[in-house]
Design a protein around this nucleic acid. Structure first.
Length: 251
DNA sequence: AATGTAGCCAACCGCCAGCTG
DNA sequence: CCAGCTGGCGGTTGGCTACAT
């Protein structure tokens, strides 16, 4: 047997919260805040442990909690982020205002994971939640860059940096995340390479790389090299050719 | 109508990192 | 430097509900 649960040990109440308990907690936090969760229940007149109070507030009582079903957009965001972040629910929740890590975790386990497995079993590996085909990073025929793929690239880069870099040298996850918002990509999303002009393609990718390096690793040469390796690897199977890309990046 | 089963989700547990004295 | 405390996180549980038999 493991150690006894803290709440039980202290003779605290467990299980579902009553409306009255919720009101006690809300009233206390509105008046005094929650600087010390451990001391809070005693001062608020609750027979709960601090951990339980914190969880109840974070997952249910916070005023900015968004209730109700997840929208298809939110679900797609969770799937995309989970693909690159894994089970880092709090990091995923940070991208979905009003949603909690617990809620996202539940949605993932009860809906999204099953749905994805079903899609994959049906041969729908490249389909998104709406059942539409996901576009490739770069259309080999037209050379047109897709915005969804670019956003995915940004997410991949973030993860790559975190998993491969010396933490002392790198930007925090929050710093990087803050850069990847809706306004991040507009100066490259309209790239049009339909003219079959290789030079033009190279310039576009160079601009993309340059922007990426400026935004992600302006003061960080180590990250810059990681970025380059990542992009190099990602582009091996797409145009431009390896030689062309090597020229750009001076590998 | 009674019983069994599956799904959902709020809540709990244990671990870990960071802070503090 | 270290031990104890605290908040935060991801994994798991169990009670409730809906649906099937």
């Amino acid at each position: 047997m493991g150690r006894a649960p803290c709440c039980e040990k202290m003779g605290m109440k467990r299980g579902p919260w009553t409306h009255e308990e919720d009101q006690f907690l809300i009233n206390y936090i509105h008046l005094y805040g929650h600087s010390n969760w451990r001391a809070l229940p005693k001062h608020a007149g609750l027979l709960r442990c601090g951990k339980s109070c914190r969880l109840r507030w974070i997952n249910y009582l916070r005023p900015d909690i968004k209730r109700g079903n997840f929208t298809p957009q939110e679900e797609q965001t969770i799937i995309n982020l989970h693909e690159v972040l894994g089970n880092r629910w709090s990091a995923i929740a940070a991208k979905l205002p009003g949603r909690t890590d617990n809620e996202i975790k539940n949605v993932w386990h009860t809906h999204l994971k099953k749905r994805l497995n079903k899609n994959q079993n049906n041969g729908g590996d490249n389909k998104d939640i709406n059942g539409t085909n996901e576009t490739t990073h770069k259309d080999k025929e037209s050379g047109i860059v897709d915005t969804t793929s670019l956003q995915q690239f940004a997410n991949n880069i973030t993860t790559f940096e975190i998993s491969n870099s010396n933490k002392d040298d790198m930007m925090s996850y929050e710093d990087v995340s803050a850069l990847v918002d809706e306004s991040f990509w507009p100066d490259v999303v309209s790239v049009d390479n339909s003219s079959n002009n290789n030079e033009k393609k190279i310039e576009d990718w160079e601009g993309l790389l340059d922007m990426n390096n400026k935004r992600f690793s302006y003061d960080n040469p180590k990250l810059r090299s990681y970025d380059m390796e990542f992009w190099y690897d990602k582009l091996l199977n797409s145009s431009p050719s390896i030689e062309e890309f090597s020229d750009i990046t001076q590998f």
